[in-house]
Amino acid sequence: MARVALVTGGTRGIGGAISRCLKDKGLSVAATYAGNDEAAAAFRHETGIPVFKWDVTDFEACERGVRQVESEIGPIDVLVNNAGITRDGFFHKMTKDQWSLVLDTNLHSLFNMTRPLIEGMRARAWGRVIVISSINGQKGQLGQVNYSSAKAGDIGFVKSLALESASKNITVNAICPGYIATEMVQAIDPEVLKKRVLPQIPMGRLGLPDEVAKAVAYLASEDASFVTGSTLTINGGQHMV
């Protein structure tokens, strides 16, 4: 029987690429989304991947959603915590809502999604937890104190949970993408991309969602059974750690 993977924010952008790639690798995939019903319906129609709508900042909603996925598809073996948002602004002008919403979505959701699954993974003595962090959680970024704080917290979550879970054959890893050619990044003014973004990247181009997705597929596989507590950077050389 195919292993079951759940991808949060899994219908668009990097998340959509991850969902497709995992399905291509033979996993049974479920994708969550938060609000864009039209995009989710189109994704489901195009890929055949079932989609589920809930708010990853709501612990009870995550518990219910996980149980629904497991009842319809099977026990979840692979969790990809991908859902994330930005609410950028300089800290001295940042509102409490800008701070809280980003921390809730990008960091607290890791607890909300992983906690309902981890006991089952431990009982079955197999699991993969993969967190999509960010280059800005490693190096910081102007106007993103909230986002960078959350993404740095993601890395701490990964390292600690990896230590707790290793004896149960559960690996926990992070991926830190740089500038990836998603709708959000490609919406940046082309001149800004050309003059300010690309010169920061030694490889001279944006990354591709599929390049991140293939790394997720590796970490989700048996081939990565000895890789845990790691942070994989996918940024074209922009930031080396």
Rank of each mutant, 00 (worst) to 15 (best):
I175P: 09
K195M: 04
M184S: 15
E119D: 10
T32Y: 09
Y218V: 07
V51K: 12
E38P: 07
T86W: 08
F157D: 07
F43D: 03
N146A: 08
S225F: 10
Q98P: 15
C62T: 12
K195S: 14
K159C: 12
S134I: 02
L101A: 14
N136L: 14
T57N: 04
Y218L: 09
I49E: 09
D24A: 14
G48S: 08
E72N: 10
A5E: 00
C176S: 12
L6D: 00
D189K: 15
E191K: 14
G13T: 01
V51Y: 08
G13E: 01
F91N: 13
S225P: 14
L27D: 02
T32I: 02
P177K: 14
R205E: 02
P190Q: 06
K168P: 07
D58P: 12
V241P: 03
P177Q: 09
F59G: 09
N82T: 05
A166V: 05
M1G: 13
V185H: 09
F91V: 12
G9S: 06
K53Q: 05
E211K: 09
Q68C: 06
V227M: 05
T57Y: 05
T47D: 13
Y147W: 02
S19T: 04
A125T: 12
G140N: 05
G127V: 10
Q238M: 11
S230R: 08
V185D: 01
A41V: 07
H239W: 11
I201C: 11
G137V: 02
M121H: 01
R20S: 09
I155K: 08
I118F: 14
E119L: 10
R205V: 03
W54G: 00
A31V: 08
L142P: 03
C21R: 04
I76R: 04
F226G: 06
V4T: 01
G237W: 13
P209I: 00
Q144N: 04
F157I: 03
M203K: 01
S71D: 13
T114G: 11
R115G: 04
A34H: 11
D55R: 06
I76C: 13
H45G: 11
E211P: 07
I175G: 08
T105Y: 00
R115Q: 15
V29D: 13
G204M: 06
I175H: 11
E119N: 09
G89L: 08
N82D: 10
S221N: 14
V185G: 01
K25G: 00
R205A: 06
A125K: 12
S149T: 12
T95G: 12
T57A: 10
I130N: 01
T47K: 03
T86I: 06
R115E: 14
F157R: 07
T171A: 12
K139T: 04
S165I: 06
T171V: 14
S225V: 09
G74E: 15
A40S: 02
T231H: 07
S230A: 15
Q144Y: 01
Q238W: 07
S28Y: 07
G65W: 03
A150N: 04
T32Q: 05
K151T: 13
Q186E: 11
E70F: 02
D58C: 11
S100Q: 14
T57S: 11
N81S: 05
L161F: 01
N82H: 05
V80R: 01
I188V: 15
N235R: 10
V172M: 04
F52H: 10
A187P: 15
E119R: 15
E191W: 10
Y33M: 13
L79Y: 00
C176W: 00
